[in-house]
Write a protein that binds this DNA or RNA. Structure first.
Length: 816
RNA sequence: GCCCGGGUGGCGGAAUCGGCAGACGCGACGGACUUAAAAUCCGUUCCCCGGUGAGGGGGUGUGGGUUCGAGACCCACCCCGGGCACCA
């Protein structure tokens, strides 16, 4: 009787052995080619759920596969540890955020180790420890010195529940990305990073293999529009500003402008408001400010606005047009002012109808009969009532008008982006303090690098006041100006945690390095990341920020690559009750129970077998049994006493068949691993096991051949079920460790089919199948097909029109 | 509204370049072993007609089309998921 498969025992044993032998620690001096395999690090929520495993187990399998293929694989792990939940725990349960977070780290590290992954734990990075955020602050200072960080007062997205501002990327459908609370607006002095400087480069995804979907999302997010900036004269109002500039994608319609609309928050609104209009305008501005993002962005709502009582002059035709404000105009896009062309823009059309403004047609539809429009005509046409451009096709008119404007000094061609600068200030406690001091004499002064880190004080009141809790920590706020030594105050906002995760992949290359954020040589050695895996929900947040950071740091001479992540794969999400698992929602399934019962190997395998990795899906453990049963079969089969095969002389045919199936399996498994098609890889391994079971039962393999096939199975299993494979490898008389063995390679000649099933159709309908040599000549195949008994009734008495032959597949007899 | 994915048995899913639809597994049903159960092993399992056989017909969201041949390609539509959305 072979011993029983007790996963928990062997898993514990091998995990300890691998750690003791430093099996998965990688050194730069290792001469093998490098492979940097990275999985998005988890947030320190407290418990690893099955969704985390779904992200991490298959990516570890891929990393292990690369390892066996001869790469030295850097596959690090760490913790995204700053963030609001730690603060909420402090408020709710009176636990200090640091303690709450570090306890979670302890627990999650233990859970992560149970996966049996190749993580090199010496390289662990935890973003909330001073040794890490010291360099987060240092990087902020480099960006500041490079002119990429600035402070400005602007209306910011405000989450009333989180009591902090949010970046645009963190607002989804007008709601806070974290807590789904409707977002409002606040005017605050905030720190921004100039991601817009990189808009054009971020649009290009040169040299990186990313899913098309993610690239499209990023392109949509950046939102490049070509058009013109045109100026409208307001010099007659006697203000310091002599013109109002607008961005438009339709400069060809400028002769149709009949009004202009400013965003209610536009700084020129007070100056442009006529005294008799002031009360109404102020009331409107106030109501617009109070609206939530959702109300304001609703496209269903009727357009509202008020007139300022002043006018601008369209320089192209001298028309005087009224100035208005309306909340459909956004301060943050373009110049915050739009030209109203009611005939050729539906929003302007609706607005003009409501307020009784004229709607002159300046782009004639091809079949225009001179009548008024019932809706805006937004398609191409011929320019009419357009001065020197009369008769120009509108498509050409766009560039022509922009060009003309440039000559006349009324503006010119312009590209505009939807992307805004990244707002990084947060009125929260649990984050990296922004290393800035405000001095009454010297103004905004960066903290000297030698004084970093600016330590986050442990004691703070977590009252949700809308201001950073740090504001009330006197010992933190009160400081001296690094320049003049006079009493000064520290910035009390902390940084968006997405800053911390914008460079963690760089820190992994040289953990513990204390002369900089990373060791330039080691960073250069490992970067860029060869394979990144993680959820698609980060398309326009983390993935965009990390690319921006890399490019900005490259321009500051700190990073040696243009892109951080060469290849990207997005696994799907495991949901429960149609919701993403999250601790706050309370729908988490912990893997610990399954691991305790069936072992990590079975859970790893099952997660891969569920379906295509990119799909994710509803969690259901019903099929786990099947994987457990199979692994037990593998166990028993591998440990069968092969000495009983000593007398077997396998036939040449059986020999070739086993070799063929083995090599075909190596090919299938290898190709599936390379393309992340884990589910079909598992199926291939199951089929191979079934086949070997049959071979064993029939005793058709001699001992040597059996050992070859069995060992191949173990080697192919090694990335997926590392513990089981190791145990069986050693038990079958091999030397530890299977994970230092090369991955099997296949021989196409041996894998080639000798016999094929030739499908015989009549008029495309299956009538028979015959087994024939793969090399069968076309004439013979057709002849064979026509002579088949089952084919006869379907061709008898009919005219054979033609016979289609697809080599290696089928013959289709077309009859009439 | 616009832009991406996707829709295949009771379930998860497979199907290379247009060539045997349903691999692999779950579940279910039947059987072997057992005093019994668990475990294990064997068989059946898309639907309909036919006798439970031989055989035939239908079938990959719906309706058309291209083709010797369509799950895959084209057109129109329905549904589901994701992204963007008053972006001038």
């Amino acid at each position: 009787m072979p011993p029983e498969y007790i996963p928990t025992e062997i898993e514990k044993k091998w995990q300890e052995r691998w750690a003791a032998d430093h099996l998965y620690e990688v050194e730069e001096s290792d001469p093998r080619p490098k492979w940097y395999a990275l999985t998005m690090f988890p947030y320190t929520s407290g418990d690893l759920h099955i969704g985390h495993w779904y992200a991490m187990a298959p990516s570890d399998v891929h990393a292990r596969f690369k390892r066996m293929q001869g790469y030295k694989v850097l596959h690090p792990m760490g913790f995204d540890a700053f963030g609001l939940p730690a603060e909420n725990a402090a408020i709710k349960r009176g636990i200090q955020p640091r303690k709450w977070t570090m306890d979670n780290v302890e627990n999650m590290r233990r859970q992560l180790k149970s996966i049996g992954a190749v993580y090199d734990w010496r390289r662990e990075a935890i973003t909330c420890v001073p040794e890490y955020y010291r360099w987060t602050q240092w990087l902020f200072l480099q960006l500041y010195k490079g002119g990429l960080a600035y402070r400005a007062k602007a209306p910011a997205n405000w989450c009333p529940s989180c009591q902090t501002v949010l970046a645009n990327e963190q607002v989804k459908d007008g709601q806070c990305e974290r807590c789904d609370t409707p977002v409002t607006h606040r005017d605050l002095e905030q720190w921004f990073l100039r991601i817009t400087n990189y808009a054009e480069e971020l649009l290009r995804h040169d040299g990186i293999e990313w899913p098309e979907r993610i690239k499209i999302m990023q392109r949509n997010w950046i939102g490049r529009s070509e058009g013109a900036e045109l100026s409208f004269d307001i010099s007659h109002l006697g203000l310091p500003e002599k013109d109002l500039r607008v961005f438009t994608t339709r400069p060809d319609t400028v002769y149709g402008v009949t009004f202009m609309v400013l965003a209610p928050e536009h700084p020129l609104v007070p100056a442009l408001t006529a005294p008799q209009r002031r009360a109404e305008v102020e009331a409107y501005v106030e109501s617009a400010r109070r609206e939530t993002e959702i109300q304001r962005l609703s496209t269903e709502r009727e357009k509202t606005g008020v007139a300022l009582g002043t006018e601008a002059v369209v320089p192209f035709n001298g028309r005087r047009v009224p100035l208005l404000i309306a909340d459909y105009v956004l301060l943050g896009y373009g110049t915050g002012v739009v030209m109203g062309v009611p005939a050729h823009d539906q929003r302007d059309f609706d607005f003009a109808k409501k307020y009784g403004l004229p709607i002159p047609i300046v782009i004639a539809p091809p079949d225009w009969n001179g009548k008024d429009l019932t809706e805006a005509y937004v398609a191409e046409g011929t320019m009419v009532n357009s001065g020197p451009f009369e008769g120009t096709p509108s498509e050409q008119g766009k560039a022509a008008v922009a060009e003309y404007a440039q000559q006349k000094g009324w503006g010119g061609p312009k590209v505009s982006y939807r992307l805004r600068d990244w707002l990084i200030s947060r009125q929260r406690y649990w984050g990296a303090p922004i290393p800035i001091v405000y001095c009454p004499h010297c103004g905004t002064v960066p903290v000297p690098e030698t004084e970093l880190p600016v330590l986050l004080p442990d004691e703070a009141e977590f009252k949700p006041t809308g201001e950073s809790p740090l504001k009330y920590v006197q010992g933190f706020v009160s400081t001296r100006c690094p320049q003049c030594g006079h009493p000064a105050q520290r910035e009390t906002d902390t940084m968006d945690t997405f800053i911390c995760s914008s460079w963690y992949f760089l820190r992994y290359t040289s953990p513990g390095y204390d002369k900089g954020a990373w060791d330039p040589e080691r960073m250069h050695h490992w970067m860029p990341v060869d394979q990144y895996t993680g959820g698609a929900e980060h398309a326009t947040m983390h993935l965009l920020y990390a690319r921006f950071f890399t490019k900005a740091l490259r321009d500051l001479g700190l990073v040696s690559c243009d892109e951080p992540f060469l290849r990207l794969f997005n696994q799907g999400t495991i949901v429960l009750g149609h919701h993403k698992m999250s601790k706050s929602r309370g729908n988490v399934v912990t893997p610990d129970v399954y691991v305790g019962e069936h072992g990590a190997d079975a859970v790893r395998m099952y997660l891969m077998f569920l379906g295509p990795w990119e799909h994710g899906g509803e969690w259901n453990d019903a099929g786990l049994n099947g994987v457990v049963r199979w692994l037990n079969r593998v166990w028993r089969l591998a440990l069968e006493d092969s000495s009983v095969l000593g007398s077997v002389v396998s036939s040449e045919e059986a020999r070739r068949a086993l070799l063929r199936v083995t090599h075909q399996t190596i090919r299938r498994v290898t190709q599936d691993l390379e393309t992340f098609q884990f589910n079909t890889m598992v199926a291939a391994l199951m089929e191979f096991t079934n086949y070997l079971g049959q071979v064993w039962q029939d005793r058709t393999a001699d001992k040597e051949l059996w050992h070859f096939a069995r060992d191949t199975l173990l080697l192919l299993l090694a990335p997926s079920t590392p513990h089981l494979a190791e145990e069986l490898w050693v038990r079958t008389g091999h030397t530890y460790s299977i994970h230092s063995q090369p991955f099997p390679t296949w021989d196409d000649t041996l894998a080639a089919e000798e016999q094929i099933t030739l499908v015989i159709q009549v008029n495309g309908r299956l009538r028979d199948r015959v087994t024939v040599p793969a090399s069968i000549p076309e004439a013979r195949a057709k002849e064979l097909a026509l002579s088949q008994e089952k084919v006869q009734p379907h061709v008898a008495g009919k005219q054979v029109e033609k016979v289609v032959y697809v080599p290696g597949r089928l013959v289709n007899i077309v009859v009439r």
